[in-house]
């Protein structure tokens, strides 16, 4: 059995009469990258804040490293690194001072911190900005600095709340690469995201959250296999033809979703389905065949898309 780092049973968070996290269960094991996927307001951040011990639990049970966040928060925080959803870098300090002071908050000595700063700035590709102030850094650089800061204490568990939201594709890929390296080196990661591709790339296992509940759980592959047939046909129609086509297509694929701008057909064999469409006299403007993704899983589970 692998070590369980985080264990939640019936974990609940309420703000007045709003239930942000509604009795969820999960186990996060040593060395895995565990994802929380879900739309805005699903309760991802609220869950992260309970794990990082900064938000008191309303109900249920939660342990981190086998410790109780309510009474042993300090010992837990000593061993975690946190990348919050919103950057909260210290604008009064330079890049390296931001790292230094977090080392001090963790009671590291100057002699321990300094080599670590050099190492982490290199990791975050910020070595040449060492003495720069934080303000002029790009969004991607700030995010990388926040991640470097979270690593200063060499944490056993790294919690990343939407690490790549708001970054351009290039910056995202650089971040993914860094996270991938952490994982390869044995770190345990908890990642929340709206992006299916991010979850598929980085997570060994994930839960899909919606309105405070976990609606599915598994590896990205398992979830796709379980909830979405292998391939997806994305069809676009002229506005006039669409309603007619939707009727003609009834039953042609294992499952279909009619979205505002297109129709999705889920199937195990896209070629077969395309032939069937042709036979029925359905002629879309545009056809795109792709493998199904976590987005399709989410659509299936909730009837909604993740990012509106």
């Amino acid at each position: 059995m692998t070590d369980t780092l985080v264990e939640a049973r019936g974990l609940t968070k309420r703000f007045d009469d709003l239930t942000a996290v509604d009795g969820i269960d999960f186990d996060i094991h040593q060395g895995e990258a565990f994802g929380f996927l879900g739309p805005n307001g699903a309760g991802k951040t609220s869950t992260m804040k309970m794990i990082t011990t900064v938000s008191p639990i309303t109900e249920g049970k939660l342990t981190v490293f086998g410790l109780d966040p309510t009474t042993q928060g300090r010992s837990i925080r000593q061993r975690i690194g946190v990348v919050p959803q919103e950057d909260n870098l210290d604008l009064e300090l330079t890049v390296s001072e931001n790292l230094y002071i977090y080392g001090r908050y963790h009671d590291m000595s100057r002699a321990e911190i300094n080599p670590r700063i050099t190492e982490l700035l290199e990791f975050a590709q910020l070595s040449d900005r060492r003495d720069s102030t934080v303000e002029p850094l790009s969004g991607g650089m700030k995010r990388r600095l926040t991640i470097a800061r979270a690593l200063i204490n060499d944490p056993d568990l790294i919690i990343l709340d939407e690490p790549t939201t708001g970054l351009d594709p290039q910056a995202r890929h650089l971040l993914w690469d860094r996270l991938y390296r952490l994982k390869r080196d044995g770190a345990t990661l908890i990642i929340t995201t709206h992006y299916m591709d991010e979850a598929e790339q980085l997570c060994d296992r994930l839960v899909v959250m919606d309105q405070g509940k976990i609606v599915a759980e598994g590896s990205p592959r398992e979830l796709i296999e379980q909830y979405a047939p292998r391939e997806v046909l994305e069809l676009r129609f002229d506005d006039e033809q669409r309603d007619d086509a939707v009727i003609k297509m009834d039953g042609v694929a294992a499952r279909s979703e009619v979205l505002a701008d297109r129709v999705l057909l889920y199937t195990d064999d896209a070629d077969d389905t395309q032939r069937a469409l042709h036979d029925r006299g359905v002629h879309p403007e545009q056809v795109l065949v792709r493998r199904s993704t976590l987005e399709d899983v989410f659509l299936r589970l909730t009837g909604r898309r993740l990012i509106d």
Partner: peptide
């Protein structure tokens, strides 16, 4: 370069109680 290679670990219990 490996970042998570333990360059140090502040052992549990080493925390200063007063840290203002």
């Amino acid at each position: 370069m490996s970042v998570s290679a333990p360059s140090r670990i502040s052992g549990i219990g080493r925390l200063t109680p007063f840290r203002a």
